[in-house]
């Protein structure tokens, strides 16, 4: 995990994501998910490029099922884009960086 990518959990999700002072990108993933491994380095890169503007983090669905359920995650990787505590965009499945960046810009 990149150093700017935070580990979100059922416990810290509210404070870290819902009450964040900037937009947040949440990557729902698991160890056994192949496509999740593909998207991970892209998230690391974006987290550096958007260091001051956007917060990036991951939710491991194996250990944080409450949060995964709350947001109706039924397929991973799922990227949820949060602004002021609510979901404003969503990407399901692994997609190239350009596509993620496009949605990210819409979110900002």
């Amino acid at each position: 995990m990149g150093e700017n990518v935070i580990e979100f959990t059922d416990q810290n999700f509210e404070s870290e994501v819902l009450h964040a002072d900037k937009p947040v990108v949440v990557d729902f993933w698991a160890e056994w998910c192949g496509p999740c491994k593909v998207i991970a380095p892209v998230i690391d890169e974006l987290s550096e490029e958007y260091l001051d503007k956007v917060k990036f983090g991951k939710v491991n669905v194996d250990f944080n099922q409450q949060t995964a359920m709350k947001y109706g995650i039924r397929s991973i990787p799922s990227l949820l884009f949060f602004n002021n505590g609510s979901v404003v965009n969503q990407i399901i499945g692994s997609v190239p960086k350009d596509n993620i960046e496009k949605i990210l810009k819409e979110t900002l």
Binding site: C33, G72, I73, R74, S75, S78, I92
Partner: peptide, 17 residues
Amino acid sequence: LFGYGISACATCDGFFY
């Protein structure tokens, strides 16, 4: 509903069921 209950990959998404 693709990704919201419909899937083409049990190894990816079976966990949620």
